[in-house]
Design a protein around this nucleic acid. Sequence first.
DNA 1: CGGGGTACCATTTTT
DNA 2: TGGTACCCCG
Length: 756
Amino acid sequence: MFELNRQQRQAVAHRGGPLLVQAGAGTGKTGTLASRVADLIEGGVPPGRICLLTFTRRAAQEMLTRAGHLTTPGAAAQVWGGTFHSVAHRVLRLHGRRLGLSPGFSVLDQGDAAEVLGLVRHDVLAAEAARRTSAPRTTPPPGPRQGGAPGGGAGGRRFPRPDTLASIYSRVVSTAEPLSSVVERDFPWCRQEVAGIRAIFEGYTARKRARQMLDFEDLLLAWRGIGSATAGAELLAGLWDQVLVDEYQDTNALQADILALLRPDGTGLTVVGDDAQAIYGFRAATARNMDVFVARFPGTTVVRLEENYRSIPPILAVANAIMAVATGGGDAKVLWSQRAGSGRPRLRICEDEAFQAEAVCDSVLAHRDDGVMLRRQAVLFRASHHADLVELALARRNIPYVKYGGLRILEAAHVKDLVALLRLLDNPWDEVAWFRILPLLEGVGPATARRVMADLGLPSAAPAAPAAPAAPTGPAAPGSAAGAGLAPAAGAGSTIAWAPSDPATSPLARLLAVAPRVPEAAADAVAGLRLALGECADSCLPGGATPAPGVQVERLSRWLAPVIARKYSSPAARMSDLDQLAGVAAAYRDRGQFVAELTLDPPVATGDLAGPPLLDEDWLVLSTVHSAKGGEWDVVHVIHAADGMFPSDMACGDAESIEEERRLMYVAVTRARDVLEINLPRRYHVAREQFRRLSDRHLYAQVSRFLTDEVLALMDVEHAGPPVPTDEGASCAPASGVSEAAGMELVDQFLSGLWA
DNA sequence: CGGGGTACCATTTTT
DNA sequence: TGGTACCCCG
């Protein structure tokens, strides 16, 4: 059972006005929140009138499970719990009609958004190119191709690519900052292209509205949007009696607005956070929300949790020393702990990256021999690819591990194919899904796909055909064509914007009713597709029932099998992924809910889909620091703690982002309970590892700037070199560009390697 | 119009 | 390495 201290009890028992809990790392925040939920239920608040907003779905589940142990079994399960985005989705499915939103709307994740932006980008650039080539008749020189820039169409210019556009868009919307200033500050290399970017964003918005698609930002905007009408505001304020928010330091201004709509006077509102752990500034989160909260809701009760129950004192000393020099991070909190334990954290300076990987594996195994199971240990890093060599080494030694952060299974092509099929069934106007599925057919490429979509009632936004070769009409006509490219079919677009569309005339209904015209090679596949979709469509069973999601996934995978065999490598492995997915789908009763949860909260770890069988075993955790938030392990291995990697050199532009990197390091070290080991490679390759192309040039890393002399004084520093020094000291021959000092240090390492 | 071949570029964290 | 855009051939 969870024993509460005085402050925790105060946070649990508080009733009435708004409550702000400042909870330092490891101070029992999760248990406190869970207890508060249970206490509210015990006190008579109906569970369905409580909403618990957390940073990940896992966090919500964990808290509600714990709350369930403290109160009537099953009651806690009725609490609304999840991320802002997933709760937004549920609210909008219920009440989105107020905004003209059909309940079957699609959710676009960042990748989907980039695809739509890519479609619009294509149209806008094509229109522009058409205008350009027609007026001055300068075709690009035939010889050395000018189109190096991936903006291609527009004469060698550097135009942002789809995923860059998605980041710019996301940043502009979530900060509510003007496009021009965001580009100027964060994407200065695009500043020439602001006009084009603006055009693409306008087209993107029109497209989403017409097709009933919402991206992540839209989910929050629409949620807030409900409150812009009086009736909607009343509805929102009446949804719940108690709203609790975790990780409040990582919410943004929009989310704060939503909270104010949910509990206008702040009663029944609880937020918990720690400004020293604010690490999502890049996503427009602002720890200022913590201060703003107090100002916005006068009479807020503030409770501070400062006793740490997680780490032994020497680890906390390092954490405190890292934050001691932080600037602008709110009031300096000093964590303290009554735990016994005196093992000092260790800094291991490794000869190079390969040796770092080996040293970490050695250490992991040594701790396991000491009785710390693999799952009680974690390897933490700043960027996903930092773990590459460690992963290789683990695989070579047959050490099982699960990796969080970085690539997701949902981003694999074959999984996206399947999800696209499911999305079609839910939202037949989902253009991205159609545009993904149709070119899977043999003989069908983008052009035919566009034509088929038009036949199905999904006209392509930009009339590419008239814009390009025709245009004999002089400069005026192409000019207007380019204008039309922005809000193509402007009339049609505006009339159907947000309008719930009639399923009976949907593109899906049309496909099922009449076989579309496709090249001969695709005829069989189309027939199979129509059959498969027909057997999964809503109310397709006798009696008006709909097959269960798990059944649908199986049925659609069966159709997908030959496609996958033809298009992708290792089809067997991919099909087994789809089998796993069917297993996950089987837990759902509603297809839309399944797809939405898959997008909003995708399986985060490699092997996550593998599920239960793995749970019997023991495995090591590999995680980005971001994904490790909220976690704790007995032994924590931090890797790549070198300047330029952690902090990332990409984040060293301004003081504010460096401070965020510092907090990131603070989060990393405060995950450790008993043992903290920080590693860095002394020597590393210049070329980016993520390109798999390592150059010969070596650089010599500096210890991360956050590990100052004051911090190092609290640690045991050790050098680790190759176990057996190799021939003629080649390993210490300075590479080009190495300073004298670095060369000497290399000699020292060589020597200490002899004695290691 | 689709698909194969070629040349080029790529910066980190995630709901 | 791998995604993208373009060229050219069938």
